[in-house]
């Protein structure tokens, strides 16, 4: 089986500094692929390059097609949808308008699926999204991305800055999506939860992939445990 997403030799530079030095990894359809690593390792840069919002060199193949260099809207249309770090909800739009941004003009009746999954969003739908709590904003960001009908969902630290109880909810949602067969690339600082959920995982450090294996293998690895699991 060829992977749904194949990234090869990805290089990103910010001015004179190269942040990614040839990153290669793959994500299979129907699986959760985790990218873990310390602050500044290059996880967000990797996702940003895949979504086409920063220039990059290297190859990015999605479903057999080369999408490197395509504009972000074409990448979204092809089915790669990102829930970015910090959620990036549109604070001056209502909750429902944020969801409509995911729908992009398709029939409003599809909103029902989002409200079913996150009933709190239905209650808050007429509020400005900026008035939501952090956890609610994360739900909104995920719901909005799902409405874009992703064939591949990129999640950048969905648990960042949330209370433990909310983190648990977010991961329950992700587990649920996995059961439904949604393909995901999950970037996380919360390595323990990410590895438990992941089918395959990659460890990044200083702009390179330094290790990979199944989620279980990395969970049992002593080096990973010491560095990322605080054990």
């Amino acid at each position: 089986m060829t992977p749904l997403l194949e990234v090869e030799e990805l290089r990103v530079r910010y001015g004179a500094v190269e942040a990614l030095h040839g990153v290669s990894f793959a994500a299979n359809a129907g699986e959760v692929t985790a990218l873990i690593g310390a602050n500044g390792a290059g996880k967000s840069s990797t996702l940003a390059a895949i979504s086409g919002v920063i220039p990059a060199r290297g190859r990015i193949r999605f479903d057999g097609r080369d999408i490197a260099g395509a504009p972000p809207y074409a990448i979204v249309r092809a089915g790669i949808v990102q829930v970015p770090e910090g959620r990036e909800i549109l604070a001056r739009m209502t909750v429902e308008e944020n969801l409509l941004m995911g729908l992009r003009g398709r029939d409003r009746s599809e909103l029902a699926s989002a409200y079913e999954r996150f009933p709190i969003l239905r209650e808050r739908r007429a509020l400005l999204a900026g008035a939501l709590s952090g956890g609610e904003q994360q739900m909104l960001a995920i719901a909005r991305a799902l409405l874009a009908r992703p064939r591949l969902l990129l999640l950048d630290e969905p648990s960042l800055g949330l209370a433990p109880l909310i983190v648990k909810q977010v991961f329950e949602t992700l587990a649920d999506l996995k059961r439904q067969g949604v393909t995901m690339v999950l970037v996380e600082q919360n390595a323990l939860r990410a590895l438990r959920l992941a089918d395959r995982a990659y460890v990044m450090d200083l702009g390179r992939i330094v290790m990979n294996g199944t989620g279980g293998e990395l969970l049992r690895d002593e080096g990973v445990a010491r560095t990322y699991l605080g054990g």
């Binding site: 919002v53 809207y73 949808v81 970015p84 990036e88 604070a91 739009m93 995911g102 874009a148």
Partner: peptide, 10 residues
């Protein structure tokens, strides 16, 4: 409001 979010939303 947010050019980066807009681009990521397609």
């Amino acid at each position: 409001e947010n050019p980066r979010a807009a681009r990521l939303l397609g």
